[in-house]
């Protein structure tokens, strides 16, 4: 099974970065949002580190990473070019925000991240994969960003815990509901549903997400809980990239 690990890490890490950026920008929405002891720069630095790591991971997906910059050529047509461009800008804005404390920069960075999520949602919804040729990837990615943002985008006390629980429940419901919806779709969607349901990473990921949800009620170590959620999302993302069936694999069979 080809799980496309570079894409798994690229998408999850950039979504982590977007989530942190959103959390940080949210905290800065009022001048008094920053409480004593908070170090908003640490969040921005974290976001930048995640974004940079994600972009680095994406290079491993290329056969010729040294020419990665040419991937920006087709901004006119290719969602992949647009995704690359927006996340490139996003990373630059994050870096800028780390260096210069300015609310407009924070807002701009957060906005770029959200636009990046939209681009990503469109890039990974190819026409050749009927099961995900819809808004599902966007919602999966957006929820991942919210969950990771609310886990890693907080300092000291968990001010975003309700958002985290809400988005976790939404993601779990979505992950469990989607294969059921597919079973009433075409042959390829049904086969994708079966592949997801038979996927070990999928159930492992779901279990970890559920564990993360439980941990959020125990209010124990937030770092441990964040890592549990990160692993859960990585695992389900492996299924997304590795077990979603492509029409080309079914040619000659009924669709």
């Amino acid at each position: 099974m080809n799980y496309e690990f570079p894409l798994v890490f690229f998408t999850v890490l950039t979504q982590l970065a977007v989530g942190i950026a959103l959390a940080a920008a949210w905290k800065e929405r009022r001048a008094d949002g920053i409480r004593p002891g908070d170090n908003p720069n640490r969040l921005w630095q974290g976001a930048f580190a995640a974004a940079a790591a994600g972009l680095l991971a994406s290079l491993f997906h290329l056969a010729d990473p040294l020419r990665a910059f040419t991937a920006l050529s087709n901004v006119g047509h290719s969602w992949l070019s647009r995704e690359g461009l927006v996340f490139g800008v996003f990373a630059v804005l994050l870096l800028a925000r780390c260096l210069v404390q300015a609310r407009w920069l924070s807002l701009l960075a957060a906005l770029a991240g959200v636009v990046g999520l939209v681009m990503q949602g469109l890039t990974y919804a190819p026409v050749s994969m009927p099961a995900i040729n819809n808004s599902l990837p966007f919602f999966l990615f957006a929820l991942a960003a919210l969950i990771l943002g609310s886990s890693f985008g907080q300092e000291k006390e968990n001010s975003l815990v309700s958002l985290q629980r809400l988005s976790l429940i939404a993601l779990l419901l979505l992950l469990l509901a989607v294969p059921c919806v597919w079973t009433s779709g075409n042959a390829l969607m049904r086969a994708t549903a079966a592949a997801w349901k038979a996927s070990v990473p999928f159930w492992g990921g779901v279990a970890l997400l559920a564990l993360g949800l439980a941990l959020s009620f125990l209010r124990r170590n937030a770092t441990v809980q964040g890592l549990v959620l990160l692993c859960g999302i990585l695992l389900t993302r492996m299924t997304f990239f590795g077990d979603t069936l492509h029409t080309a694999g079914q040619i000659g069979k009924p669709f």
Binding site: H61, L62, A63, D64, P65, R67, A68, T70, A71, S78, L80, T123, P126, V127, S128, M129, H246, T247, A248
Partner: peptide
């Protein structure tokens, strides 16, 4: 550059 996006996209 071998990004495989065409391979993913072509049905």
């Amino acid at each position: 550059i071998g990004c495989s996006n065409c391979i993913r996209s072509c049905p």
